[in-house]
């Protein structure tokens, strides 16, 4: 499975785990910590087209609504429905059960441009 080390990171704190032409997307441990207690995740619709760098989901805390940007472009092929009942999964396991959606990439080259964990960590 995916963990911090084997994911790629966007500047806006999303991670992508690349497997063939699919990317699993979530937010970094740093981001979940900044947002603090997550109370709701507005998931994209399965089948929706997302564009790298554009808003794909929204994460709400009690006092904030944070945009989640797609790290890569493509079509949403799955969303993490478990977050509807238990949004705190993003806090508990941002790199595990707290994943948000999966994208079938239309331009896998975009993934190349994302940062490694070490490089991402250095920017924090």
């Amino acid at each position: 499975m995916y963990n911090q080390e084997n994911c790629k990171f966007a500047k806006t704190h999303e991670w992508a785990f690349i497997e063939g032409d699919t990317a699993v997307v979530g937010i970094s441990d740093h981001a979940q910590h900044e947002i603090s207690d997550i109370v709701f995740v507005e998931l994209p619709k399965t089948g929706a087209k997302v564009e790298a760098g554009k808003r794909a989901a929204v994460i709400e805390s009690v006092k904030s609504a944070s945009d989640i940007y797609a790290p890569v472009s493509g079509e949403v092929i799955a969303v993490n429905d478990a977050l509807t009942g238990d949004p705190a999964l993003v806090n508990k396991a941002p790199h595990g059960e707290g994943w948000i959606f999966k994208v079938k990439m239309s331009n896998p080259a975009e993934a190349e441009a994302l940062a490694s964990y070490a490089d991402y960590k250095a920017t924090l």
């Binding site: 709701f40 805390s61 009690v62 006092k63 904030s64 609504a65």
Partner: peptide, 13 residues
């Protein structure tokens, strides 16, 4: 509750 729907947080959205 559910305040993140509202204008003081989500503003134009």
């Amino acid at each position: 509750t559910l305040q993140a729907r509202e204008q003081h947080i989500r503003r134009e959205r």
